[in-house]
Design a protein around this nucleic acid. Structure first.
Lengths: 339, 339
DNA sequence: CTGTTAGCGCCTTCAG
DNA sequence: CTGAAGGCGCTAACAG
C-alpha cells in the first residue's frame, strides 16, 4: 500500500505537505503541488479513507434507511427510484451511500446506532415516517443530522423533511372520483402507522365529507405495501354487501395486486370498479388498465432529501426545513364516469 | 464519543483487555468479560469502525458495481432484485454493501480503485461482464477478491463467477419458437460487448442453424438495456421488407419497450409477432400480453455471488469457482403457434 | 510556504 | 490471564 509518506519521500517534502496538497490548501506553492500530484499519480496513491475519517471524524457517507426490511422494500419500485434520486446527488457531491439491511425494527435501530456512534455516516435519510419509531427518536435524542422523506410525526418544526402534500393529494384524487359521479368510494392503505397513509386517508375522508358522502368504516382497509397486500384487500371488498364503485389506493404496487385479483374474480376495471392510486411508479403505466394515479415525483423526493442532508451535515446549525415536492394527477384508464 | 478507554476506565482494566473482550478472546476470564460487557452496554459503547479498519485493514464491506451508471441500471428491475439477493446474505454475515455510483466507465474505475487502494471494501461484486473492461482488468491485476455475475470474458478459470447457462437458455427459448412453427425469428439484444448478450445470441443462432433456418444478419438487432431501447429496435423491424413473425429479446425491459411500440404501430402481440425474452422480472407477468420468458432466478444470482465473495475474502487462496444457476422457461401469453 | 509533533480509536506484539 | 507500548495512515495545530 502506498501511503502519504511514500509520496512525501518520493517528492522530497514532508507528509503534511502532501496532506495539504490533497486538501488543495491554498498556502502551498503551485510548483510543489504539481510535483506532489505527479508523484501521487506515478505511485498510484489513493488515500486511506479510514485513516482520514478517523481523524476528521466524518466519512462523506450518508446512511439510507428503509422501513422494515430492505428485502421487502426493494420489491416496491418506489425504492430504486428514490435511490436513483439520492444517488445522483450524493455522487455529485462525492458522498457514498450505505444502505440499511436490517430485517426487523430492532436490527435496524442497531445498525443506525452503530452508524452514528461508530461515525460511519455523516447523516441519514429516513425513507419513511412512522408513529413511535425507535430510529427517529434515537436520531432526535442524539441530535444527529437526518432528514425524513415524508412528514415527521412530531417535532415537525425541528426535523428537516421532504414530502408531498399527501393530504391535499388524497383529497384531490378522491374529488376526481366524486366528479366522475362515484359515491361509494373505498380506501385501501398501507400500515396506518405510516404518516403517508394517514395523510392520504384523511384527504380521502375530508373529500367525502365535503361532498356530503357517507364515511363508511368498512370501506377503509389496511394492508401491506406489497402486491400481495392488494390481493388480501380485495377479499375484504368481495365480502361486502354493498361493494364500492371506486377505490382510492395509497400505493401503485398495492393497486397492481388489487387489479389482478379483481380480474381473477371477474370484476372489470374500470367498468365495475374504478381505481386511482399514488406514486406513479412506472408500472402504473404498463399495467392494463393503465392507472390513474398521483405522480409524487419520486426521483425528486430522493434528490432533494440528499441535498438537504448534505447541507445539514456541512452546517449542523442550519434550521430545519420543510420541502414540499408538488404532485400532479396523471389521468389514464382506470376510472370510468358513472354519470 | 465513548471509546475503548472509557470503558476500560469504568471497569478498572486496561484498554487492551477491553479490545480482547470485543474480539471475544478466549484468554480473558469470564468474569472480566461480563464486567466489561456490562460497562460497554451501560456507557453505550460502539466501536469506531474507522479506527478498527485502519489497523486490521479490512472493512467488512463489499462493493457492488453495476454496468455504466447506477442511475440507468436502477431503472431495470433486474438490479433491485439482485441487490435483494446480495443484501440478504451480506446482512446475515454482518457485511455492509457500498454501491458504485459513477456515471461513466472512467468514474467507475476510479471509484473501484479508491475502494481497493483505500481498502474500504474487502471484495467486490461485478454485476456485468463486458469485453475489455477496465474494472475487471484492474481487479485481476491487483489480485483483489471479486466475483462476476455473468461469464468472464477471459481468464475464466481464474475468476469466480455465478452465471446462468445463457447459451443453452437462448437455444431452448429459440427452439420453443421453432416448435411453434416460426421460421422468421429475429433477435434483439443489449450491447454486444456484454457476455450475456453474446451467449444468448449464440444460443439463438445455433438453434436456427440446427433447425436449418437461415441466419439473417438484418434480424439481429442491438440496442440499450432499457425500455427505450426496445422502442428503437421496433423501428428497425418496421422498416424490414420481410418482417419476422417472432422475436427473441434478451431482456424483459427491452421487451416492454417493443411490446408498447408494436402496439402503437397496430401490430398485435402475439397474433402478428410472437415474443419471448429473458429474466422473468416481475413486470413480465403484468404486462399484456404476459411474457413468455426464461426465469434466470435473479435473487439467487445475487445471493450466491454474495456468498462467493464472502468466502473469497475469508480465504483468499480459495480456487476460483463457477456457479451455474439453473434457469427455466415460464410460458405465458406472448407466443402463438403458427402451425 | 513548509516541516515537526501529536493524536484520532483501535489492535497486537511483547512482557509479565 | 492482563498491561504497556507502538503503530495503522492521516490531519491539525504550532512553529518557523
Amino acid at each position: 500500500m502506498v501511503t502519504i509518506k511514500d509520496v512525501a519521500k518520493a517528492t522530497g517534502v514532508s507528509p503534511s505537505t502532501v496532506s495539504r496538497v490533497i486538501a488543495d490548501n491554498p498556502r502551498i506553492s503551485m510548483e510543489t503541488k504539481k510535483k506532489v500530484r505527479k508523484a501521487m499519480k506515478d505511485l498510484g496513491y489513493y488515500p486511506n479513507i479510514h485513516a482520514r475519517n478517523l481523524v476528521v471524524k466524518s466519512s462523506n457517507a450518508i446512511g439510507v434507511v428503509m422501513s422494515s426490511s430492505a428485502d421487502k422494500a426493494l420489491q416496491n419500485p418506489f425504492f430504486p427510484e428514490v435511490l436513483r434520486g439520492i444517488g445522483s446527488v450524493t455522487h455529485k457531491n462525492q458522498y457514498s451511500i450505505t444502505l440499511s439491511s436490517g430485517q426487523s425494527e430492532e436490527e435496524i435501530l442497531n445498525e443506525v446506532k452503530s452508524m452514528v456512534y461508530g461515525s460511519s455516516v455523516d447523516g441519514v435519510i429516513l425513507l419513511y415516517s412512522r408513529i413511535n419509531d425507535g430510529v427517529t427518536n434515537f436520531l432526535l435524542e442524539q441530535n444527529f443530522p437526518f432528514v425524513i422523506v415524508g412528514k415527521p410525526v412530531e417535532a415537525i418544526e425541528q426535523v428537516t423533511h421532504v414530502d408531498n402534500d399527501n393530504f391535499k393529494a388524497g383529497k384531490e384524487i378522491t374529488n376526481y372520483l366524486i366528479e366522475q359521479s362515484h359515491e361509494r368510494i373505498a380506501f385501501i392503505g398501507g400500515s396506518r402507522d405510516l404518516m403517508v397513509t394517514m395523510d392520504r386517508e384523511s384527504g380521502y375522508q375530508v373529500a367525502l365529507a365535503e361532498a356530503g358522502l357517507p364515511n363508511i368504516d368498512e370501506y377503509r382497509i389496511q394492508t401491506e405495501f406489497l402486491k400481495s397486500g392488494g390481493q388480501e384487500a380485495v377479499e375484504c371488498i368481495l365480502a361486502m354487501k354493498h361493494r364500492p364503485t371506486a377505490i382510492v389506493i395509497s400505493d401503485d404496487l398495492i393497486s397492481l395486486g388489487v387489479v389482478s385479483m379483481l380480474e381473477k374474480s371477474n370484476i372489470r376495471v374500470p367498468e365495475d370498479i374504478s381505481i386511482v392510486s399514488f406514486n406513479n411508479v412506472y408500472l402504473s403505466e404498463i399495467i392494463r388498465p393503465a392507472l390513474t394515479t398521483v405522480d409524487v415525483h419520486i426521483y425528486e423526493l430522493g434528490a432533494k432529501s440528499a441535498e438537504a442532508i448534505i447541507n445539514k451535515t456541512n452546517n449542523k446549525s442550519e434550521p430545519a426545513k420543510r420541502i414540499i415536492i408538488p404532485h400532479n394527477i396523471v389521468y389514464r384508464d382506470s376510472v370510468i364516469n358513472r354519470g
